[in-house]
Design a protein around this nucleic acid. Structure first.
Lengths: 203, 203, 203, 203
DNA sequence: GATGAATGAGGATTCATTCAT
DNA sequence: GATGAATGAATCCTCATTCAT
């Protein structure tokens, strides 16, 4: 029992540090946030931060990983029992991300901010999401609803980039567009960019 | 004459510093690169860096600005006498960027790396490019070749994000796809994402 | 019985800590070895180290003292019933030390390493050994087998230094000389350095 | 000319740091002396220490090397035009060291203190001195004034250890013996330890 | 007796920037 | 304009030690 309390306290301390790190990294960026500040915000000693995460970068990785996993989990739910219709799937995918961003403003902003950084813990999670999109594109192509002349890996990457980029821009100042406009825009691009059609449509 | 030589030397020194800064920022990132290192690589004294750029951030701004302006100039050329057909325009836009990246690998990689940073000098240049895309979208809508139910500002931003994101990913390891595949993918998304079509197409 | 077991466990824990301390101090030096590391190597909690030895320095003292006492005990045995002949005594003294070093490589190396440190617990033990040598020198002088024009205290100190220094050097890389060569060298210096002889011998 | 002044100032700064380091390391030991303290004593900023020596250990090495080279130079002078008689050579060698210690109390004490530390810059210089003694022993053996049954390398090492050890002990409290007693003791050991004589002398 | 998470003062090192030459 | 030695505030990280369990 006692041991259990100790475990709980340790976990609680860890949680406090993760939250403090998230807040400060988001506010000021990783480089401008210093270790004492984080510890102080978490109301623990600096040493405790190093005890739990090894170094400041270790804390960043964990913060990032935590957020990325949360988002990943959400997005994956859409694919567990996916709507057959690509447009609906595209919309569900986009809506889930927007939903997540609205519920977890800080985590979301932070993730978007660091998603493009090299060597961040996010990269691998991002890759997984892209892979998932790729699979759904492939199945769409097989089913004949998506154009065959497309490279699913590239299309998936392009789409993820578009989502991330537009959302990062939007979330920095949500007054720039309504939630619905954002969802619409992204959905249209996705759905139609993949849909079968011929070039002569444009001439 | 002597004056002229001095001018030339000054410009040359500036060029050396910009190049050294670009190389090191790209290799190690801005924060991990220090002023003495840059000066040393440029084979001048640290003081000289401060003479030319005020401070380290000043050098970064100039490096970024230089690259962004070069890219911007290139992209703008496409819009001076644009092809009427949206698909061709989209392709020309994308091709120009890819071309630039291949000719200026380092500058390109660096720009893409910093494009998503808040407060970077690049942001304003990026905004200009986005604005240009927005105008072309608007004109496409007016001409009736683009769907009317689209927010040109958002579409432009979405497209720019997609370009940047996919290209950043590609340029980190060009073996991931051929140049042509990249151009194709981006062009298709752009052209079709904007083209008139109705939702029932997908049902 | 249970009490007995507890006693045994306590003694065992102490032994584990002493050994872990010895190993790590020898490998990395006292300053670069930290308490958690020692405890971890001994497979006990840090607190336990403090329970047994008060502080890190306390452990060092005990490690040193233990080794020094072991060595002292050995050396003293030679003087309990000493051979009358100075050469044989000198040889027996030297051989005992070499023997000890070979049997307790780690302890030995450690002792030699710290013997010259100021303020180490070893100093007092070393002083005792030197005193013992001094007594034997004095008795030799009285017996007329050692030259009278010598300061026994200094001679004893000189000899102890020589022993320690050469042995420390040897033990760091035993390939440098055979065991017998070391013993021979030290014995000769001792025996003859003290033996009566007149300066004109050398002219 | 200006450049020259700059050079001189730099050298002066270096000298100040070396002296401050020597003083403090001697007083408190390397580990207990901190960088700010050294810089402060040298009346420069901490950064300057790092500019000149890379790190704290770098300063220690230089201090040690400087002292060792000074001593080495002195000792070597004895061997440039050595007295043919071994006793006189032995005495000259010992006297030179004692002389040096008296003239450079601090450097001397410091050298002796650190001579036995592993991996100190001193080791290589000490090895050179030992090598020199070895050569003189070898030549003594060839000339027939030293016993043939001795390993010159070991004898040289033994003697150097003896010198260092006794001197280190003496210099810590010079009241323990007169200068003359020290010289006498070391000279006798050296001269007689090496001189030809047979074991049966002692039986 | 034993545990090990937490502490926080202390120390090493960095590096943007200055300024006398 | 150019130089580069010097600066010192800022920051990262360590680790001996404690104490509630």
């Amino acid at each position: 029992m006692k041991q259990n309390t100790r475990q709980q306290n340790k976990a609680e301390t860890r949680r406090l540090l993760l939250r403090a790190g998230l807040d400060l990294f988001l506010e000021q960026g990783f480089e401008k946030t210093n270790a004492v500040e984080i510890a102080s915000k978490a109301e623990v000693a600096v040493g405790t931060l190093y005890l739990h995460f090894g170094d400041k970068a270790g804390l960043l990785q964990e913060v990032l990983l935590q957020g990325a996993l949360d988002l990943h989990e959400r997005v994956m739910k859409v694919y567990i029992d996916p709507p057959g219709d690509p447009y609906t799937l595209a919309r569900a995918h986009v809506e889930t991300i927007v939903q997540f961003l609205e519920e977890n403003q800080k985590e979301g902003r932070f993730l978007l901010e660091y998603a493009s950084r090299r060597d961040s813990a996010i990269t691998s999670v991002l890759d997984k999401i892209v892979k998932q999109i790729e699979l759904s594109v492939e199945s769409g192509v097989k089913m004949g609803v998506y154009r065959a002349d497309i490279n699913p890996a590239l299309a998936a990457r392009a789409e993820a980039s578009m989502n991330l980029g537009l959302l990062a821009w939007w979330i920095q100042d949500p007054g720039r567009a309504t939630r619905e406009e954002i969802i619409e825009t992204l959905t249209k691009f996705r759905a139609s960019g993949l849909h079968s059609q011929t070039k002569h449509d444009y001439t």
